[in-house]
Design a protein around this nucleic acid. Structure first.
Length: 108
DNA sequence: ATTCTGACGTGGG
DNA sequence: CCCCACGCCAGAA
């Protein structure tokens, strides 16, 4: 929470454009800990209480909505993404390559 | 203080 | 191609 690590994660996640998704590893890489992808997920867990952090836009490397179970409803994450124009099928982001937003590439 | 687990990712067998 | 193990850091029991 107070740790700068979470702040970094929030900063990146918060910058994810609407209708786009990113991966935990991509964020981890951006903040300087490419192998700490787990922490990114953990940070999201804490972030899920914050409205400022669109945790629903963060999926795993496969494009799977792995964290959907942590949301209020199992469909909430998918609903939010679909609402933004992201097509989801069977917990998987369709056209993942197209909607994928890499903070290292797009954000610099 | 110690131990385990966790919304991942990569590498090796 | 499928399965297993390791690494990373932080928080909770």
């Amino acid at each position: 929470m107070d740790t700068n690590f979470f702040e970094k994660v929030y900063a990146v996640v918060c910058q994810i454009p609407e209708g786009r998704v990113t991966a935990y590893g991509a964020i981890a890489r951006k903040i300087g800990s490419p192998q700490s992808a787990r922490m990114v997920g953990w940070a999201m867990n804490a972030a899920h209480t914050r409205d400022d952090v669109p945790a629903h836009r963060v999926v795993n490397r496969q494009g799977l909505l792995t964290g959907k179970h942590h949301f209020d409803g199992i469909n909430l994450m998918q609903q939010l993404l679909e609402n933004e124009g992201v097509e989801i099928k069977n917990n998987q982001v369709q056209n993942f390559d197209r909607v994928f937003w890499d903070p290292n590439t797009e954000l610099s």
